[in-house]
């Protein structure tokens, strides 16, 4: 069943349709939001707000499809607003989640993973905002070029070029970070 059919069923009162939508999008959407606001609690609040806004917004024509693009458009706008009004985006990643992972990994695995994570985080931060955005939508949001084009309101070819450029920039930054670490 398509996303749009699920939204329609939910609006008709079938709450189980929400569970399926949540299953499909919670990892991708939460990852996208959390990566931007860098605060677990704020990300959860935003996630909830975005989901409810999209489900309640009857101005969107469900017959056109493209639920994913619509969801991430709302998410992008909400995240930008949150970042503008709140400077807490520079907080460290939630320590509780690190501790939880630490309990399930050996010290060697953990140090390697954290080192890799720090390197990667450094490389990502060196990218331009446009490159970071397109990578988040592609890699974390798992959107297609067409869906990203709708979110960013640019031609599909532009999205493709941006993704290629962002990945090239990321790999270059990763190389530099690794040289710096080494």
């Amino acid at each position: 069943m398509s996303d749009e059919d699920l939204v329609k069923r939910l609006r008709e009162g079938d709450i189980s349709a929400f569970d399926e939508l949540y299953r499909r999008y919670h990892r991708r959407l939460f990852g996208y939001v959390a990566r931007q606001v860098r605060d677990g609690a704020q990300a959860e609040d935003l996630f909830q707000e975005i989901f409810l806004t999209v489900l309640e917004d009857r101005s969107f024509d469900l017959s056109q499809g493209r639920f994913a693009a619509w969801l991430f458009t709302v998410a992008r706008n909400r995240c930008l607003n949150a970042l503008r009004s709140d400077q807490r985006q520079r907080r460290a990643l939630a320590r509780a989640a690190d501790e939880e992972r630490a309990a399930t990994r050996s010290p060697d695995d953990l140090s390697q993973t954290l080192a890799r994570g720090r390197t990667l985080q450094g490389a990502i931060e060196r990218l331009s905002t446009a490159h970071q955005q397109v990578l988040l939508l592609k890699q974390v949001g798992e959107l297609s070029y067409r869906e990203i084009a709708e979110v960013q309101q640019v031609p599909e070819g532009t999205v493709k070029s941006r993704v290629h450029a962002a990945i090239a920039a990321l790999r270059g930054a990763l190389d530099e970070e690794e040289q710096w670490d080494g």
């Binding site: 990300a43 989640a97 990667l120 990502i124 890699q139």
Partner: peptide, 8 residues
């Protein structure tokens, strides 16, 4: 790039 998904 998806590594941070564990934390997110």
């Amino acid at each position: 790039l998806g590594w941070s998904d564990d934390t997110a």
